[in-house]
Design a protein around this nucleic acid. Sequence first.
DNA 1: CACGGTAGGTGTACGCCGTACACTCGTCAA
DNA 2: TTGACGAGTGTACGGCGTACACCTACCGTG
Lengths: 238, 238
Amino acid sequence: MAEQAETLRRTPLSRDRILHAAVALADLAGIESLSMRNLAQDLGVVPMALYKHVANKDELLDGMIDVVVGEIDPPVRDAGWKHTVRRRILSAREMLRRHPWAPLAIESRNMATPALLAYLDSMVGALRAGGFSTDLAHHVMHAMGSRILGFSQELFDASRRAGRSGATDPEPPAAFPPEVAARFPHLAEIAVAASHDDASVVGQGCDDQFEFEFALDLLLDGIERLHQEGWTSSRRPR
Amino acid sequence: MAEQAETLRRTPLSRDRILHAAVALADLAGIESLSMRNLAQDLGVVPMALYKHVANKDELLDGMIDVVVGEIDPPVRDAGWKHTVRRRILSAREMLRRHPWAPLAIESRNMATPALLAYLDSMVGALRAGGFSTDLAHHVMHAMGSRILGFSQELFDASRRAGRSGATDPEPPAAFPPEVAARFPHLAEIAVAASHDDASVVGQGCDDQFEFEFALDLLLDGIERLHQEGWTSSRRPR
DNA sequence: CACGGTAGGTGTACGCCGTACACTCGTCAA
DNA sequence: TTGACGAGTGTACGGCGTACACCTACCGTG
């Protein structure tokens, strides 16, 4: 018995084991009770042991996000863009329902994690494959905003540094570094399309206000159409 | 000079002074450096003094949210619903740009504050005044989701208890208490409309999945239309 | 087989946080 | 004059993230 306990305890810690335990703990007990100390206790280990595998708590959260974003179904092949996008987004939504802490966690990080970038990149890819111009694909990604994962109006928005100093912190936009661009070609494509889009842009890659109004008007126009048609929810599918 | 300092220090603390100082501190230094201790120091007071005016930090955050939501412009009178709604939402967006910590703060609270309810109620009011059925108005509010304040897919969603125990916590839906319903008549109206909407609903007031797909399809259909029309951002307004 | 380096787990400690609780002290009604 | 009361104070506690020094079991090399 002592042997067994020791064997269990000896199961080696690893970044992956830590990340999955953290996700499980957040799912079960809520994100606010995910502390390094609680997590370590769940793993039968002393808190500082975790730091041999994750740099700090922020990096732990990033890792957790990558884990759950990795649960989103891969894109369906050989279907129209609309069906592909729709399926993917509904799958993302299911993931979010399994991990209710995720939207807030994702939104509170101030940069996208690799898995998230991959998800977004493949979404842009689906649009491009469907014949969308980089221009339209770009605005569509903004318009989707919160729908696209159920969160985050502006994933790359500078104002997303919500937590950080409100003071001006005018780092150059820097597009993204070439090796990142290589891994996420569709994102890179719409990013450059946006950056020499027109002259109204100062230093930023895209015009926030325009994107916001684009999405807002897309919705309002759709709503207006429903209203004029006398839409009612009784023609509910299924 | 000592006199003056004393006079300054004697400026009596009040809930309002605390709330506005807290908003200013969060604007300037970021929400993560808003601690009861820092805030008290800004006010020239000892931390525990704050607790004579706010119950705890959560209530402080609620108060801050009410302050900033109160900055949103009142609805314009005698304009079409579309213009009214559009203006209001753009005003909300401006407020959010002044207070970049607000979206996260709002999303992280697990229930709406009074000012927020008032804002939503008046938004529903604008739709109803424009001739929308309670049914359509209800779905539209869901569809607006993150647009409506720039945040929060599901303001009333039970899954919004993101921070709390993921375990089942099946409180009765309880609509809302009558005195609240009286203060926010339009919200109450669409809430009851949703609750005896159809039989597919189990205990919850509305069908999350339906609302999500409603909004998603509204966007996708609008996007499809743009795509077919060969939309391009060069016909940019202004 | 001996050994030294190294990776992974430990223990202690520090400075921050929110806030409970007991207190002081100035003001004002009786 | 007094005494109650409400605003601000001081002290203290438990929890947090994590820096830093330490131990120790293992493994490749001589």
